[in-house]
Design a protein around this nucleic acid. Structure first.
Length: 247
DNA sequence: TAACCTCGAGATCC
DNA sequence: CTCGAGGTTA
């Protein structure tokens, strides 16, 4: 069972949400990390994600962490994040049990923020992969007065949710599920994952008997052991690159 | 047979 | 968490 801090203004929870907002799987604002957030929070410049978007370059310089150049980078990174895909924004909201994968699933059915606000419980529950828990979490989030007010503020601050241009997909890997483990030399795991999806395959984060292939990079961990236990086909980097036509 | 329950497997969350 | 299989109930 999971335990959560029940204090609604618990500083550690608030800071964790801010860190999650900028994290790679959410808004991916690389130039801002835990130490900047710690200072912004301490100076009461940022208490919630919306506050990031009200900061000036001078505010960053006030932190005594960086000079003008880095401060400008941080400011720009925040402004640019306003055009990230809606799925990233939904992920970043920290709705319980709604992470990257669920957010992507949701935005494929609900392409605009309005769709989220208007979605009925029934509509949410009828989305494949969404059950009553997540449906309720989403519904409640988008029917909470404070949340709606904040969402309006985001929109007023210029969020426009550019969706990534849909490149042409193929179906060579249709029906195949891949699990990546370890470090690849020629690309990151995200890049490999994108390539697999572009070719119609799926990626998963855990190995099971439904896994078609495990791609093992350097220092592969327990997923490799599990693949061996289950007799799942294991590919090294070269074999994977050949399979996807990159070598 | 529909409604309800529990449980395991698979996948994801943070 | 979600889902579906399989058992139980009425």
């Amino acid at each position: 069972m999971n335990l959560y801090c029940l204090n609604p203004i618990c500083p550690d929870v608030l800071k964790a949400k801010l860190e999650y907002w900028v994290s790679k799987e959410a808004m991916d604002i690389d130039s801002i990390g835990p130490s900047v957030i710690e200072k912004l929070y301490k100076l009461e410049l940022v208490k919630a994600p919306i506050d990031f978007y009200k900061l000036s370059i001078l505010d960053f310089m006030r932190l005594d962490l960086v000079k003008e150049k880095s401060a400008t980078n941080m400011f720009n990174a925040i402004q640019e994040s306003k055009s990230k895909p809606l799925s990233r924004f939904i992920t970043a909201l920290s709705i319980r049990n709604v992470g990257k994968e669920t957010a992507e699933l949701l935005t494929s059915e609900l392409p605009t923020l309005e769709d989220f606000k208007n979605a009925t419980l029934e509509k949410l529950i009828n989305i494949d992969g969404i059950g009553d828990k997540i449906a309720n979490n989403i519904y409640e989030f988008f029917h909470n007065e404070h949340n709606l007010q904040t969402l309006n503020e985001f929109e007023e601050l210029g969020f426009n949710f550019k969706n990534s241009s849909a490149l042409q997909k193929t179906d060579e890997l249709a029906g195949k599920t891949f699990v990546l483990t370890g470090t690849l030399q020629s690309m990151t795991r995200d890049e490999a994952s994108d390539k697999i999806k572009m070719m119609g395959g799926k990626t998963s984060s855990s190995v099971s008997k439904k896994t078609s292939f495990v791609i093992a990079g350097e220092n592969a961990g327990s997923k490799l052991d599990k693949a061996q236990d289950l007799g799942v086909i294991i590919l090294n980097e070269d074999e994977f690159l050949s399979m996807v036509g990159l070598k």
